[in-house]
Design a protein around this nucleic acid. Structure first.
Lengths: 247, 247
DNA sequence: TCCGCGCATTGATTGAAATCAATGCACCGA
DNA sequence: TCGGTGCATTGATTTCAATCAATGCGCGGA
């Protein structure tokens, strides 16, 4: 029966090198959504497909920026490190997200795969040229950048002014919302990243993250059937905790 | 065109309503730097000048976005508030900075004047149209947005992973650098914003901000001739404290 | 001149998150 | 089967920033 699909060599590599865009999972939400079906062929011409294994580094802080990417499967983590090893994760990218919005010549952040990842890869040159040819494409990328800026600013509020439980509640809600937008399961929510990643995203230690999970569980707002799966039991309650309730 | 004679000198104002761009203080660094001298006339046609008195609110969170602004004098603070009154300042805008990069229809942040402020104001419609006419203008705004995104991400690192003294050192250095870029004094650095503003920017309380100032003063890294004027005595030392030294 | 007010600083105390330390548990290879 | 390893959780202790409280100081108005 379907056992075959479950056991078959998973995820890594069902993307076809050509003609794949039309049937792509993220066709409607990624950059390429700016282009009509016939125009996407032009995008496909300059596209190369790339897979990452868990924890593989895509780019490192300081690397010259040569390529930009559209994420088609898996989750990417963006982080910035301090000289002494402290780390801040500035965001998680989901399928349909674009990587390469912020920088010009040099990468200001490190990008690593969380679990297996699939990407469409473009040289900055090619993408630049295509953007000139299809202004819609440029506009969409600009819109993405603006969205990323709003997210980054919301994150500043989270980091600067929320308490640990509030941070976690806010994180879970935001991730759930984004999962929905990206056609992933919003409610039994999957958390592919480790507690360390969550801590480095929220500006906390793993212990405090763990304790905050427990608090949310004990107050009945979430359930944790497994460490990497959360059920948002009381969405409203979570919003109240996250300081995001505007009655 | 004899523009000089037409200019009415209002309270704050050395800006002229017409023909002023050519001699504007921020002509070389603001958005308008994308345009040649003759093209700037087109920008000036759709521009209105506006002054703000200290603490005047330019826009409030949730307001519909109808106009965008280019700051010509003074400092603007951008903030986001939580329902219970907690506040996070996401950035300070200096002369030459642009306001209206992040949002589409609705303002996601409040913008208020710190001290007296002068702005060039444009309707989003007009600016949109001009951007279509002068792609260079659009490109420059996009570049601004990308820069703002990088700043916001650096801020996330600051908020999530630096200690109070590190935060303050980082703030002073960044502000000093930006002041220099904006043709303001970089070393006897002026801090027009209140301690409360600094606290809400760094994610601290005013007391902790004050104590951090004292620590930096006691370690000889800065001097504080007045509460709103800082001398960066040991720039390297400050960088080391700010966790920004890459040997 | 003096009072009151806003703002920054300093001191004392408290409390919450970091740190230190231990346990549990799943997974893996010997 | 049995250690060993990595990760999450929980508990005990410490530390440092928040809170509470007071003082100083410049400024404007009565």
């Amino acid at each position: 029966m379907d056992d075959k699909t479950l056991t078959a060599p998973p995820s890594l590599g069902f993307r076809k090198p050509c003609g794949a865009c039309a049937s792509c999972d993220v066709r409607t939400m990624a950059v390429c959504a700016a282009l009509a079906d016939d125009e996407v062929a032009e995008l496909e011409k300059i596209m190369t497909s790339r897979n990452l294994v868990p924890d593989e580094m895509l780019v490192s802080e300081g690397d010259p920026l040569r390529r930009v990417y559209s994420l088609t499967a898996g989750v990417l983590r963006l982080s910035i490190a301090l000289p002494d090893g402290r780390r801040q994760i500035t965001g998680f990218l989901l399928p349909g997200d674009y990587f390469g919005l912020a920088d010009d010549d040099v990468h200001s952040a490190t990008a690593e795969a969380i679990g297996a990842v699939q990407l469409c890869s473009f040289t900055t040159r090619d993408m630049q040229a295509l953007m000139e040819r299809f202004p819609k494409l440029k506009d969409r990328l600009h819109a993405f950048t603006r969205m990323a800026l709003r997210q980054a600013r919301d994150n500043q509020v989270m980091l600067g002014r929320l308490t640990p439980v509030e941070k976690l509640a806010s994180f879970l809600l935001t991730l759930s919302m984004r999962a929905a937008e990206h056609k992933l399961s919003a409610n039994p929510l999957s958390l592919p990243m480790s507690r360390t990643d969550i801590a480095d995203y929220l500006g906390l230690t793993i212990e405090t993250v763990s304790r905050s999970f427990t608090k949310l569980r004990n107050t009945g707002l979430i359930q944790l059937p497994e460490p990497h799966i959360v059920e948002l039991v009381d969405n409203r309650g979570l919003q109240a905790v996250a300081g995001m309730d505007f009655h």
